[in-house]
């Protein structure tokens, strides 16, 4: 099992303890999405906003579509679009009978804004998009990982150099994992889909 092989990877230094997700998330966005969807299967659907179900299904909007801006949009356009959408979807201003629905939407808009307003995250997101990974929320864990790293590294320049070393580290790791696995990315994806359908 691949999860066991993942466990045998020597523990990374504390600062990188969130590392192992990263290659997984990049290569298996669907699995993350499904997982999140199945987190509360027994819960009353009314009280638990289940945003991912909509996302992976009928509404596969990317962050740019969500904000209603072109992929070439400037930071200013992103900010303006965000504030405009916040005025519409923020629970403080949304119609009282649609608060729950709009809150979900606001959280997604917020996620999109947070990613696209940060040049580094935007670059990563654009790269994933180019690879054909379109699911907006599947990349979620990636951003959480980013945040944790950002918190741990105060100094920006230090952050950058660490980030680069991490990236190469990650590449090595994912290569190692793939070889240990003897499965192509596509094969994994197919298996994933079979299992979750």
């Amino acid at each position: 099992m691949c999860c066991n092989s993942a466990l045998t990877i020597p523990p990374p230094d504390p600062c990188f303890s969130f590392l192992p997700t990263r290659p997984d998330v990049i290569s298996f966005p669907v699995s993350v999405s499904f997982r999140v969807r199945h987190v509360f299967p027994h819960g009353p659907s009314k009280s638990i906003p289940d945003d991912t179900a909509q996302l992976s299904g009928s509404d596969p909007a990317c962050f740019y579509d969500l904000l209603g801006i072109p992929e070439t949009g400037t930071l200013l356009e992103i900010k303006q679009a965000y504030k405009q959408l916040a005025r519409k979807y923020h629970p403080d201003v949304s119609p009282p009978d649609r608060v729950e629905e709009y809150t979900k939407k606001f959280i997604r808009v917020q996620e999109a804004y947070k990613t696209l307003s940060d040049p580094r995250r935007r670059a990563l997101y654009d790269r994933d998009m180019a690879k054909g990974i379109h699911l907006a929320f599947s990349a979620r864990r990636l951003f959480e990982f980013d945040e944790l790293c950002t918190q741990q590294m105060e100094d920006k320049s230090e952050w950058k150099s660490r980030w680069q070393s991490q990236l190469s580290h990650l590449k090595k790791r994912s290569m190692y994992k793939d070889s240990g696995d003897n499965m192509s990315w596509g094969a994994k994806m197919r298996r994933q889909r079979n299992e979750s359908s």
Binding site: C3, S17, P20, D24
Partner: peptide, 9 residues
């Protein structure tokens, strides 16, 4: 203990 998500098969 926090262990990050593993590959799900």
């Amino acid at each position: 203990v926090t262990v990050q998500k593993k590959v799900q098969h």
